[in-house]
Design a protein around this nucleic acid. Sequence first.
DNA 1: TGACATAATATGTATATACATAATAACGTC
DNA 2: GACGTTATTATGTATATACATATTATGTCA
Lengths: 233, 233
Amino acid sequence: MTATARKSFHAIKAEMARRIAERVWAPGALIPGEEVLSIEFGCARATVNRALQELARGGVLVRKRKAGTRVALHPMREARFVIPIVRQEIETKGGAYQFRLLSNRVEKAPTSVAQRMGLSKGKEMLHVQCVHLSNGKPYQYEDRWINLDAVPSIRNETFETISPNEWLVTHSPFSQAEIVFHAGVAGTHEAEILGVAEKDAVFIIERVTFVPQKPITFVRMIHPSSHRMVTQL
Amino acid sequence: MTATARKSFHAIKAEMARRIAERVWAPGALIPGEEVLSIEFGCARATVNRALQELARGGVLVRKRKAGTRVALHPMREARFVIPIVRQEIETKGGAYQFRLLSNRVEKAPTSVAQRMGLSKGKEMLHVQCVHLSNGKPYQYEDRWINLDAVPSIRNETFETISPNEWLVTHSPFSQAEIVFHAGVAGTHEAEILGVAEKDAVFIIERVTFVPQKPITFVRMIHPSSHRMVTQL
DNA sequence: TGACATAATATGTATATACATAATAACGTC
DNA sequence: GACGTTATTATGTATATACATATTATGTCA
């Protein structure tokens, strides 16, 4: 068919994706230029361009000026996942959200934390710990260090009605982040807070957020081993 | 300034991103229409449209016809990570790559696997197990089930020179995937293969890949707890 | 008042055209 | 033949225009 009643860039994109998937256009192969494709599909070059650009963004095509467009050699695909707000994450899953503040005070940052944030070792930072609950059961233990130079106004926040997570999301935007996922074992402290056995496996997410040149916060989020992080492509 | 020597959609996008970040346009607020913005920025509506669409794709704006464009209420940001080929992942980190095939035979799929792939319970599938090594040390234990209906030609592959991971990447494209990350504890079998203590924490990635309506493969990739998955935003 | 048709409107997309830019290919010089 | 300059070319972007589509707002009639 391709008897395009309406030739949209969506249809064109889909058709090209099909050709790539079915190896009509083999990995590494140079595909026809925009001009040629626009004639083939009976549409404007701009339309083909949009379809090609979107496919390139998705990583299945590699485009270079003058050199042309080719099918990505290593279809190393990209997946996306959202950086959620814990409360939303819990509520989306149908749980009733609560959080409990465990501690909130200014302390000298330990080396490991200061280093991760690119700050000097003994720096005074706000150290906040809390646990997020879903239906009364511990869901995530949040251990957070906040750079007071970046968000001085947080000093007066008691976190009685709002969690540090949400406070920062609504008061302090960030433009860069580094996120690390890994597995670990629960220490005595974490086990107690999360209500799991000591030495149980835990799922750990660590995140440092920045605005250019200025670290805002480092957070370590620890989930019981039952936690699943799911994403679709 | 905004004394746009050249008013590109990049510049406009950046300026709008700034306004959102600095709360000039507050979360949830309705921002001016494309027409108005195009006048303000002194460019065509199409240019504004492109900038707005990209921001909307990134999740910081929410657009609805007739209703207009508003700043996302919950700036739930998206991060991306690549779905790597193990060999590349290891080599990028500077390790010498090897893999060892542990088993390769047709078996009846257990319920848990069949279910995940949306196939009937006792189905015959190719079950391949192997371990990927970095500098001789176990890096990932790969336990994979392959739907022979989707890739019949894999039946004759011995996997002596190429790992199932790479074979599939180069021979069988997929268009959809579901990926799950979680932490677990090493059973006797896994502990032995990965060279870690039994009950140690492990980082597990499970992935099911599809082409529309047809599952291709289900793979469970198990890493020692020293593994870190890193991504930047 | 409520149901339903209709108008108004912001975004979504397609098109032709023009020019910008990056990278290769061709060319000429030494 | 090595090297730098120029021409060529495919993609990248901007623009004006036109029409499509989804959704809200409005108005009409029972």
